[in-house]
Write a protein that binds this DNA or RNA. Structure first.
Lengths: 190, 190
DNA sequence: CCACGATACGGAGGGTCCCTCCGTTTAGCA
DNA sequence: TGCTAAACGGAGGGACCCTCCGTATCGTGG
């Protein structure tokens, strides 16, 4: 028998090209404004091929935004490692977090919406974010800078909510920063 | 000539029945889960009739959630009129605000998304909300309880973001309250 | 009371989605 | 080179929002 286990070369090629094109399109136009037909046509494959590689549009989206999610942990470490006051470091993390979430239009709301849902295609990304926030909380809490009842899920939701609004209304960084300052002060207080 | 200016009796009847049914359906199932066909069928009218009265789905939604929006000002007054500390009154207002926004599934995000957009069908509702928040800010600021750089738009976005997350993830009131406490403390601080 | 015209009704169908199904083509081992 | 498992491609199904237009109804002037 001729069991060919690894993916065929053309399949690998197509999968990568589709993911690249999708990343580009989603980033430019946002989730809703990109149709699966458009991705297939731009990538030069049939719609059937697209769906063979990515069973739903959300799965494609998940693959398209995969790369940058993986750098989130590094960003958390970097924000925390700096020398400044807890408030400054927390704000730096928040800003990095919002910058990540808003890098692809529509991602902030989609990911924040999926926060409690284990069945979502974004569940893995949510866990990454939760862990990063937990690390930030642990670090600042060990310095006694945080109020006691803050948890990672709550923080993800608060900052994710801000990110979603910033993304949707295309707010300037200043507007985002002033909203994040409110959240940071609220979390540090008490 | 026979110019019949006022609406015909059947038209008035249908308009009201459609709005009633739509309010009920939107409230039960949320914006996305209700189709225009479903509204028409449930109301017992043709799809053409529905669109004669409400030119888009968003216009229908706007009409469906009209009634409760108008009571928001009363809620603001009531929250402010109580005797408690500024923090308690602010929190009471936030909770009332979130309760309003989450009363119809999907409304929080849609309205908060429309905050800067004058062309949105929800523009009028946004103005109502902004004014209510402005009144709250003015009252508390006159007591010196607020940080200086808080504005109504920012507050609408912050609390609207929390409301959207609460609505989408169907969080318990406790979870909402703890997030709102963070925002309130952040706004009062400094 | 009736006839007639302005008004409103209803649903077929257009355009756009996401996604499925299946006949056709291709890769790659023996 | 022949053959089979794997991959491809696109027609089309079903759902959606919305438009268009022939048909039915309302309500007034005669």
């Amino acid at each position: 028998m001729k069991v060919v286990n690894p993916l065929r070369a053309d399949a690998v090629r197509n999968r990568e090209r589709i993911a690249d094109i999708a990343r580009q399109l989603f980033r430019e136009k946002g989730y809703d404004a990109v149709s699966m037909d458009e991705v297939a046509k731009t990538a030069g494959v049939g719609i059937g091929t697209l769906y063979r590689h990515f069973p739903t549009k959300e799965a494609l989206y998940d693959a398209a935004i995969q790369a940058w999610v993986e750098t989130v942990n590094a960003a958390a470490e970097k924000s925390l490692a700096s020398e400044g006051a807890p408030r400054d470091r927390l704000l730096a993390w928040f800003e990095a977090y919002v910058e990540f979430l808003t890098r692809h239009k529509g991602a902030a709301w989609r990911i924040t919406s999926a926060l409690g849902d284990d069945d979502s295609p974004f569940a893995a990304k949510c866990r990454t974010y939760l862990n990063a926030n937990q690390r930030v909380i642990d670090t600042l809490a060990s310095e006694g800078a945080l109020r006691a009842d803050v948890d990672a899920m709550q923080l993800c939701r608060l900052v994710g909510g801000v990110a979603a609004v910033v993304d949707n209304s295309e707010l300037a960084p200043d507007a985002a920063r002033s909203m994040l300052a409110v959240v940071a002060d609220g979390v540090l207080a008490g």
